[in-house]
Design a protein around this nucleic acid. Sequence first.
RNA 1: GGGCUCGUAGUGAAGAGGCAUAUCACGCCUCCCUGUCACGGAGGAGAUCGCCGGUUCGAAUCCGGUCGGGCCCGCCA
Length: 435
Amino acid sequence: MRTLHKELKEHIGKEPVSIQGWLHKKRLLGGLTFINVRDRSGVTQVVIKDKDEVEKLRGMQIGTVLEVQGNAIDEPRAPGGIELHDAKITVMVPVTDEPPVEIDKPLSHKPDNLDTLFDNRVIGLRNLQETSIFKIRSELTRSIREFLYQHDFVEINTPKLVAGAAEGGAEVFKLDYFGKEATLAQSPQLYKQIMVGVFERVFEIAPAFRAELSATTRHVSEVTMLDIEMGFIDDHNEVLNMVQDMVYSVLTRMYDEQGDTLKSLRAPELVIKPEFPRYSMAEIHQLFSKETGKDTTKEVDLTPEEEKWICEYSKQHDGCEAVFATGLPKSKMKFYHMANDDDTAKSADLLFRGVEISTVPQREHRYDKLVEQMKAAGIDPAHPGFSHYLLAFKHGLPKHGGCGFGIDRFAEKIIGLGNIKEAILFPRDINRLAP
RNA sequence: GGGCUCGUAGUGAAGAGGCAUAUCACGCCUCCCUGUCACGGAGGAGAUCGCCGGUUCGAAUCCGGUCGGGCCCGCCA
């Protein structure tokens, strides 16, 4: 029976155990050989003295799948204090090709070397530092789910093959669908609003596809989005508070439970408060222009430089590196957003560590007003991509709001990486479709 | 789509007209090594310097083109 690395302590001084895993490292010292064997729970050090056993590993490269039988020993000199002695080696899957990248020391994440990193991704992901990134990401989505379940949200799955663009205007991937033209969903926007009429509170964690020709450290063509939508809200603030509480809860829990892993990845210290500062975009333009001398007061949206600046400003002045930028100008709002009486919309961007990770609007739930805004945006309400959507409103949708939330960007910023792609297993961008 | 940049063994880097038979580290191969943990020591193999053309007595190095990356802007998650 197989014993995992994490279970070894229960077997110290007892019957011999058998571990299975990948050869992670060899150190031959002559009469004494150390090997590291990696399984899903960790890396076990094995001590081999028998020359015949060492000889079984001759020519076997890192990645060789092994079974090792031996005695678990309490040994202070071993990493983790436990190691395997009197080892009997069985090579289960021999590997004779040397790996294209080394997996026992950190891989280069320099921008110039990202192409090599992703070309060799299949093997590079076995590097323990890469593994840590995706362990953090897994914990992130787990804790988001738990928070939302606790608040009565129902997890849904909506179609990714759709008849029309969800938001009109943005670039979409078009494809042939049995002779008809379909697109890959760039957002579950319409479906999640429809589902408010069913469950009140819904969320989805799923890919969204963006065909924009962007080549920056924060864009990819396939993103993982957390989409949240909640009905029967009092006002826009209720949505902001829900997203704020979720982010606060997830971040503090992450730093609490995964502190060692974050430290090993050299993640920045967390500077956060339960209530995130809220600045209007107009305020940010004014503050930024005053402090830097660069006039942005005529900008409609925040510039990337302002996004970085306001997060740093808020970190210094408010002790919180997560901040809401409220009051999106009406000229930038989508047809399904709710407008304010002035020239702004009920929408806010959540910024964290210098980048926009979420947009948090209240929706226009009044049928007539919505149709009016659709027409103004040049959308035909009778189009099959939209007529079903409108049906949900005709038959009663309460005041509601939600968010689109970039999981990749959030994971990237939590860990302190420099490029969104580093937080994605197999990233897709304008020139990468494999692996 | 616009602008700016970078391509040197499997990996990461140095070399910026002739000192070059292209240097170093990791990895790989051979040998030595009984407490390593980025083990150590000795030796070895591995690169038509992305590709094509030009300038020059001479090009990894300068110029032009081309292919492939990266970064920034626009747009957004």
